[in-house]
């Protein structure tokens, strides 16, 4: 990564290329690197579980392994990670596909990740509850008790605001709307044509 040097960043640990706190947060949110992590760091202990309930274990394994995998090597704060998938609810034994979030079975999953914080070795215990393939709840606790570590973890969890819920545009007084950029005729016409041709 062609990123600025560490000295330019404040606070440096949060702003390194793959900050571990940010990475943890992304993992809870099923960041795209999840599957990379699961594929790239297969642990013998997890292999059977990966084969059995791949969709489920992707999350759990990634939470534990991701701490080690995604953290910047230069910082060296990652000591190791351990996973302990404990689904409290079990759906059918055959996941449909591991490529969509719908493949993750409902249940509560936990993982522990240890890392070297400014205050010493700390362990983060994460739990994620899935309902209908979506994160319905998450929690994290830490063994660390130094102010700096708590600060980082506070930032990490502070950013997570639950799941968005839509309200009808008509029910709210608005001056404007912002989202994906509106398209004018050309793009829509072309897309409609492509779709028609694809069905033919």
């Amino acid at each position: 990564m062609n990123l600025p040097t560490e000295e330019k960043r404040t606070p440096s640990r949060l702003l390194s290329g793959k900050p571990h706190i940010i990475s943890l947060y992304y993992i809870v949110n099923k960041h795209v690197t999840l599957r990379d992590v699961a594929v790239d760091t297969p642990k013998p202990r997890n292999n059977q579980k990966l084969a059995a309930v791949f969709g489920l274990v992707v999350i759990v394994a990634a939470i534990g392994a991701g701490v080690a995998f995604l953290a910047p090597k230069s910082d060296g704060q990652v000591i190791g990670g351990a996973t302990s998938p404990t689904p409290t609810a079990t759906a059918d034994a055959t996941p449909t596909a591991a490529t969509t979030s719908a493949a993750y079975k409902d249940g509560t999953y936990t993982a522990n990740g240890s890392y070297d914080s400014p205050g010493g070795l700390e362990t983060v215990h994460l739990s994620v509850t899935l309902v209908s393939g979506l994160v319905s709840d998450s929690n994290a606790t830490t063994t660390g008790n130094n102010p700096t570590g708590r600060l980082y973890q506070g930032k990490f969890l502070g950013g997570y605001k639950g799941l968005v819920v839509g309200r009808n545009v008509d029910s709210i007084k608005l001056s404007r709307v912002s989202g994906s950029s509106l398209t004018s005729g050309g793009f829509n016409d072309a897309l409609a044509k492509i779709k028609t041709q694809a069905k033919a």
Binding site: V164, V165, G166, R167, I172, S175, R176, V177, S178, S180
Partner: peptide, 18 residues
């Protein structure tokens, strides 16, 4: 200015107001 933040899966809905 009240700006609706469009729901990424439903353009008829908003998920917040800026």
């Amino acid at each position: 200015l009240a700006v609706g933040l469009e729901h990424p899966a439903d353009a008829g809905q908003v998920i917040g107001v800026a």
